[in-house]
C-alpha cells in the first residue's frame, strides 16, 4: 500500500497508477489506450469530414458550372471526393449502357441508380468505419473503470482486515487509487459519446448531400440517355 508515500504526491496520476493493484493497473492501461485510440479517431474523422465537406462544396460548384461532362470528368474525376467517385461510377455505367445498340432505357436507368446508390453507401461505409469503436468505448469504458474500482476497493478492504486497523489513513489511499480507474473510464467515455453523436450527425448530413447529388446526376444522365436514343 502507499502508506509510506508522502501526501504531496499522493494525488499525482503516476503515483496513483504505480500504487495500484495489478488488475487495476491493467484496467487503467486498457482504458488509457482506449482513450488514446478514441481521440485518434475523433481527430482523424473530424479533420476528414471537414476536408470532405470543403472539397464537396468546390466540386459541386464546378460540376454545376461545367459545360462538358466528359471533359469535367477527365480533369476532376480522380479528385479524392465521394462526388467524383459517384460521377465516375455513373459515367462508366452510362457508357457501358449506350455502347450497345437498342439500349433498354428503363433498365439502364435502374442500373445507373443502383450503381450510384451503391457508391454512396460504399463511401459512407468507408467514412463511418471506426465510429463503432467510439460507440463501444462510450458505452463500455465506464463499466470497465467501475470494475477496476470495485476490484481496488475489495483489495483495500482486505488490506484493512489484515492490518487490524480501520483508521482513515489506511483505507483512503487504496480507495483513491481504485476510484482513479473510474475516473479514467469516464475520461475515455465522455468524449467518445459526444464525438460519436457529433460525427454520426456529420456523416448523416454528408450522406444526404451525396444522395441529393447522386439523384441530380442520375437525372442528368437519364436525360442524356433519352437524347442519345
Amino acid at each position: 500500500m502507499s502508506a509510506a508515500a508522502a501526501p504531496s504526491d499522493l494525488m499525482s496520476p503516476l503515483a496513483l497508477f504505480l500504487h495500484a493493484d495489478a488488475v487495476v493497473k491493467i484496467v487503467m492501461i486498457g482504458l488509457l489506450l482506449a482513450s488514446v485510440w478514441t481521440w485518434g479517431i475523433i481527430i482523424t474523422h473530424a479533420l476528414r469530414l471537414r476536408r470532405l465537406n470543403r472539397a464537396s462544396d468546390s466540386f459541386e460548384r464546378d460540376f454545376a458550372a461545367a459545360k462538358d461532362l466528359d471533359a469535367f470528368h477527365a480533369s476532376r474525376g480522380a479528385d479524392p471526393v465521394p462526388h467524383a467517385r459517384i460521377v465516375s461510377a455513373g459515367l462508366d455505367e452510362w457508357r457501358r449502357s449506350v455502347r450497345v445498340k437498342a439500349a433498354d432505357r428503363s433498365g439502364a436507368r435502374e442500373r445507373l441508380s443502383t450503381v450510384m446508390n451503391a457508391e454512396v453507401a460504399g463511401e459512407l461505409d468507408r467514412l463511418g468505419d471506426r465510429l463503432n469503436i467510439l460507440a463501444t468505448v462510450g458505452s463500455v469504458a465506464p463499466f470497465v473503470g467501475l470494475f477496476g474500482t470495485v476490484w481496488g476497493i475489495m483489495r483495500s478492504f482486505t488490506a484493512i482486515a489484515g492490518a487490524n486497523n480501520t483508521s482513515l489513513a489506511v483505507v483512503a489511499p487504496g480507495i483513491a487509487e481504485a476510484l482513479f480507474a473510474t475516473a479514467i473510464g469516464l475520461f475515455a467515455a465522455i468524449p467518445a459519446v459526444i464525438a460519436y453523436n457529433r460525427l454520426t450527425h456529420g456523416l448523416d448530413r454528408l450522406e444526404a448531400r451525396l444522395g441529393r447529388f447522386a439523384d441530380r446526376f442520375h437525372a442528368t444522365l437519364s436525360r442524356e440517355l433519352e437524347l442519345e436514343g
Partner: peptide, 17 residues
C-alpha cells in the same frame, strides 16, 4: 490520416498526464 490522428492523440494524452 489515422496514424497522424492517433499520434496527435497520444501526444496530447502524454502532455495531459
Amino acid at each position: 490520416g489515422e496514424v497522424g490522428g492517433t499520434g496527435l492523440a497520444l501526444l496530447l494524452h502524454a502532455g495531459l498526464i
